[in-house]
Simulated scan of single mutants.
Amino acid sequence: MAALMLQKAIRQCMRVRSLELISPVTCQQIRFKSGKQRLKAPSHAQSKDKYVRRQKKGFLEKKVEKVDKDFLKKVPVDDVWIRKYYPERRYSMADAIHKHRELAQPEMLNNMDGLIYAEMTLDMITTKKAKFIKGFRETVLLPHQFDDQTQQKVAVFCETDSDIALAKEMGATYVGGRELVKEIVTGAINKDDIDHYLCVPDMLNTVIPIRPVVREKFPLKVKGNLNEDVKAMLELFLKGITFNCVKETDYIGKIQAPIGTLNMKDEEIEANYKALIPVIWKYKPQKTVHFVTELSIIAPPSDERFLLQLEDYVPGHEKQEDEQELDDEEDKMAATN
């Protein structure tokens, strides 16, 4: 009996050996348990990939486009030209406003008192490769007031009777203390119905519970909505214009800020634009040279946008005399060759 079992096992081994010669899949061990044959596949060295820490997904790299200086110098001779063969034309602010006024005539868009916006493209890159400037929200009081067709709703947190009376007189939507805080936290007052939250310093500890609710609108001294002077805060946030810097990508931000109406004087509109620059420049990294990379004037509902000459309206784009001399020398060398 034992001899028969041994012969059977030998035949099985020979059959497996013959399979090894035919098939690339081999069996390392053969076991018999309860009269059944069990095959075990050979073990292979484990890949080390699973022990390697996965790399974080990289940020979008800024595409650096090569600028052809000769192409930028090309100027069309005629009134009609093929756009792809010439750089996009840039205007002065007065010329851009004049063109929008022509489009707004009663015979066309009939929008002679329409709003004018300054549209800016910002470079949001910092000195650190993986760190970018966050989007921001600012309010500025322009030197020449105009109706921007919006009504700001303001909540003022104060305690004294004089501050409460002043806030109500100037047009604050909500005025109060602890009870007002409780209504905002519980949702009795919808946080989205309030555009600005103003607070006096003595009430700062009281309004802390609304911080996770209102988030970026929470009163801070650097934003101007935390101040002892209730009148100054209300003048800024009721009469000023509010604009946002919206991130299009990690390294590109967009701003659209109203700077006047088409029936205002050109000098007044330009003065309003200049009042925006110091507010925006608070977010400029120290080593960034060209913070604003593009500037244009738009006037909805017109689809036209007119680019402005950056060197005339944006700090950091002034052409240095040395660079001008180098360009002249390059032109001379090219002409001689």
Score class of each variant (00 low, 15 high):
Q145T: 12
Y273M: 06
T288S: 10
V214W: 14
P258L: 02
S34K: 10
N205D: 15
V213P: 01
E107W: 02
Q149R: 15
N337Y: 14
S23I: 08
I30H: 02
K69D: 05
P209A: 08
T206C: 15
Q256Y: 00
V214P: 14
V80D: 08
R215D: 14
D303T: 15
L308N: 10
F71H: 03
R90F: 00
I252C: 03
L166Y: 02
I189S: 04
I259K: 08
I10Y: 04
L226V: 12
K84D: 15
L109D: 07
A130H: 14
E323H: 02
R83Q: 13
V200R: 09
Y197W: 09
Q320S: 15
K168G: 13
L308D: 11
G187K: 03
P219V: 10
V181L: 03
K319G: 01
M264F: 05
A94F: 13
N227W: 01
N263C: 08
D123L: 03
V213K: 15
Y273R: 08
T173L: 04
G171N: 09
I208C: 08
R89E: 13
E235H: 12
Y313I: 06
D123P: 04
R101M: 01
G171Q: 09
A172P: 05
E325C: 04
D193S: 10
I97D: 04
A96G: 09
L204S: 04
K231F: 06
L142I: 14
Q46K: 05
L39W: 09
S302I: 06
E304W: 07
E235F: 06
Q7T: 06
T127N: 11
A45L: 11
I194W: 11
N111R: 07
T242W: 00
K265I: 00
D312C: 09
G187Q: 07
V289N: 02
I252G: 00
A118S: 13
L204E: 10
K247L: 15
I259D: 11
K8H: 07
Y273E: 01
F237W: 01
E138C: 01
L166M: 13
D266C: 05
T242Q: 03
H98D: 12
P278D: 09
E119V: 12
Y86G: 03
A94R: 10
A167L: 02
Q152H: 12
C27Q: 05
K182T: 09
C13S: 07
P76F: 12
D195I: 04
S23G: 00
F306A: 03
A130C: 03
Y91G: 10
E169R: 01
A130Y: 11
M124K: 06
K128D: 14
R54K: 14
R53K: 12
C158S: 14
F132M: 04
E311I: 00
K74D: 09
K265A: 13
W281C: 02
V185P: 01
Q320K: 02
G58C: 05
G58L: 12
T293S: 13
A45S: 07
R54G: 14
G260D: 05
M170G: 00
D49R: 10
R305I: 10
Q151S: 14
E228M: 12
R15K: 09
V289H: 00
E159D: 09
L226Q: 11
P285Q: 10
I194C: 06
I125C: 07
L141W: 03
L72E: 15
R89Q: 14
P24F: 04
V314Q: 04
V214D: 11
D193K: 02
G171M: 07
S162M: 01
V77E: 15
L236Y: 06
K84H: 12
I259G: 11
E65I: 15
L19D: 10
